[in-house]
Design a binder for these strands. Structure first.
Lengths: 215, 215
DNA sequence: ATGGGATTCAAACAAACGTTTGAATCAAGC
DNA sequence: GCTTGATTCAAACGTTTGTTTGAATCCCAT
């Protein structure tokens, strides 16, 4: 059994790399097994041999990145809990955003982020969506209580809406590299992770706290 | 030439309805022409006869809803410009959000919103994405100057980032009907358009204005 | 009624799809 | 050096795909 988190120059790894790139660029349904194996320079049957099916390959592509990503998030939350009695909101947000946005620093990570955005295009009961929800539940179960404690004045139901908007802002930033450049006519660079992180934390923190003049 | 914005009980209209529903539920690539025509109860060749190709059908599905949606947005912006010297930020946001979120009130509009979210799953140079950008450019060209005037203290580059996050929050709200219910364990209803609009405007307004204590 | 353009129909098309097969090749262990 | 299990390979499997075709049918102006 080879290590599937690292990507040595094995058949399995080359398939994962090629699939990640092609799924991100063209979508899952529009990418054929043949194109994947041709790009990876391996035999056509290798996908079914190593991953069982095309669906199995998609799941493996996600699993390779998603599991380590959420592990880092959980580790950062643990570290914050141990070093603070009351975790500052900005630190909490950074723990959630930064590991994801940092993926955009490498070309391969950037590919994965675009692919992640396409997750929502999967049929509702797809095994990939289930993998995602399963992973996300673990993070949100740890994250939400800390967030609620950092924002004691925000009613629960309102907080949930705002977390929902927060996820939308983050997801959009993660995947849409071209929209920010379109909007700014080139003034904002999508691969400027520092700027994106700083601005995202600032925007979401203000949004979560809410306007001053509310009931 | 039949009216393509209304949906009379014609072959063309039945195909559009079926395609909208199926593309939204299963994705474009995973939906076959045969399934569309069977669901619409029309002959297989009707798709190619009326829309030229499967891609043409996809474009028509988007065009039918997207063009009227953005026309309503532009009309509301015009009305605001005529009734105010300085358009209030909240009114501006509502003019942008409300026409889109209101689509979620009807079952068919809700289907379309999910489909719209799947737009980003299209290949980067797909004709559907071009239709979307083309439509969006017209709205953002009118919207951005008004927004900049309502937020004179926010530097241009920062404003662009924040608009980007705003779009993400809105898009996520429009398409992800299930995530909010997952987060709230049923306490928040995704089809509660009034609540979604109120909370979204509140969140985004606070986020756009930014925190009090910034440089 | 009838001619004619628009539409619908059953049938077939070639191409591409995901997957399977069984033999060939490789890499170690004894 | 032979055996054994894992991997790779070319070839083919049966389906399904989007699209085309030409005849049949509908609809309406004349």
């Amino acid at each position: 059994m080879t290590d599937s988190t690292a990507t040595p120059e094995t058949t399995k790894g080359r398939i994962l790399d090629a699939a990640e790139e092609l799924f991100a660029a063209r979508g899952f349904g529009a990418t054929s097994t043949r194109l994947v194996t041709t790009t990876a320079d391996v035999n056509l049957a290798a996908v079914n041999y190593h991953f069982g099916s095309k669906d199995g390959l998609l799941r493996a592509v996600f699993e390779r990145r998603l599991v380590p990503l959420n592990r880092v998030r959980l580790e950062r939350l643990t570290a914050l809990e141990q070093s603070h009695d009351e975790v500052p909101l900005a630190s909490l947000l950074a723990a959630f955003f930064e590991p994801a946005l940092r993926l955009g620093e490498s070309a391969s990570g950037q590919r994965f982020l675009r692919l992640l955005g396409r997750l929502h295009s999967e049929p509702d009961r797809s095994p990939v969506r289930e993998l995602f929800f399963e992973q996300f539940q673990e993070v949100s179960a740890r994250f939400m209580p800390l967030l609620a404690r950092a924002l004691p004045d925000v009613p629960r139901q309102r907080l949930i809406w705002r977390v929902h908007f927060m996820i939308g802002a983050m997801a959009h930033t993660m995947m849409c590299s071209d929209v920010i450049e379109f909007l700014s006519e080139g003034a904002c660079r999508s691969n400027d992770v520092e700027a994106a992180l700083r601005e995202l934390v600032s925007f979401v923190e203000a949004g979560l706290r809410g306007t001053e003049e509310e009931a």
